[in-house]
């Protein structure tokens, strides 16, 4: 899917640009975007390393374990087939908390760790050490799908940057959208959870 998506974006772009005479723009965009990606990574290296370091302390101090313990009912609800105490639970919990608080940079390392642990879970399922459906290598497990769909549904409670933009552009009440934002986030996340549940049910039959 990712392969087709990526190829589709590039091919569509080039064909459309050729048809509308924007080929020079595409050339520039290709080179500039590649450069931009490196610049972004340089920025990311600092912030992500900072948060990874802090997360390491938090996990050594047992903070993350106690948070994931408190979130057990929620984790059990979202990931019914993920055994309690699995290392992925801790990373998922840390990722969710960081997302709630709007700390995107802190959420990324925890999220990547969670995906890694879920990958190991899939390995264990393939070799029969863990219960659950065994899938071929390179295929997303149910937990991975749920984790990403819930992440994409946005969990941030207070959209700090949107509020900042609003006040910058002269809103009389920049934070007026907080309530509505939480409601809309609840709708999108609710949809995500219902969707994942339906897919899991369907696949089980």
């Amino acid at each position: 899917m990712l392969n087709y998506l990526w190829a589709g974006m590039i091919l569509t772009g080039i064909v459309y640009a050729a048809a509308t005479g924007r080929i020079p723009d595409v050339t520039n965009a290709a080179v500039d975007s590649a450069k931009e990606a490196v610049a972004l990574c340089v920025t990311m290296t600092g912030v992500i390393s900072l948060w990874s370091g802090l997360m390491e302390i938090a996990s050594a101090a047992g903070i993350i374990r106690s948070i994931s313990g408190k979130m057990q009912p929620l984790l059990k609800f979202l990931y019914p087939d993920l055994p309690a105490g699995h290392p992925a639970q801790k990373s998922i919990a840390a990722n969710m908390i960081a997302n709630f608080l709007g700390l995107g940079w802190a959420a990324t390392p925890a999220g990547l760790k969670a995906m890694e642990e879920l990958g190991k879970l899939e390995d264990d399922r393939r070799s029969g050490r863990m219960s659950g459906p065994a899938r071929r290598k390179g295929t997303a497990g149910n937990e991975m799908c749920t984790f990403l769909i819930v992440n994409i549904s946005s969990l941030q409670l207070i959209p700090v940057n949107v509020i900042a933009y609003r006040s910058q552009y002269g809103s009389v009440n920049p934070s007026a959208i907080i309530g509505a934002g939480i409601a809309a986030t609840a709708v999108s996340t609710g949809t995500a959870v219902i969707f994942c549940r339906m897919m899991e049910r369907m696949k089980k039959r």
């Binding site: 899917m1 990712l2 990547l112 390179g138 991975m144 799908c145 994409i152 969707f195």
Partner: peptide, 27 residues
Amino acid sequence: MSVYFMAVKVTKTRYTLTGALAATGAG
């Protein structure tokens, strides 16, 4: 999707995109 899936070398993403689009549409 690309950052997280590529990190674990998953290319068969099953219903992730559909679910993500559904959640975004609802939002």
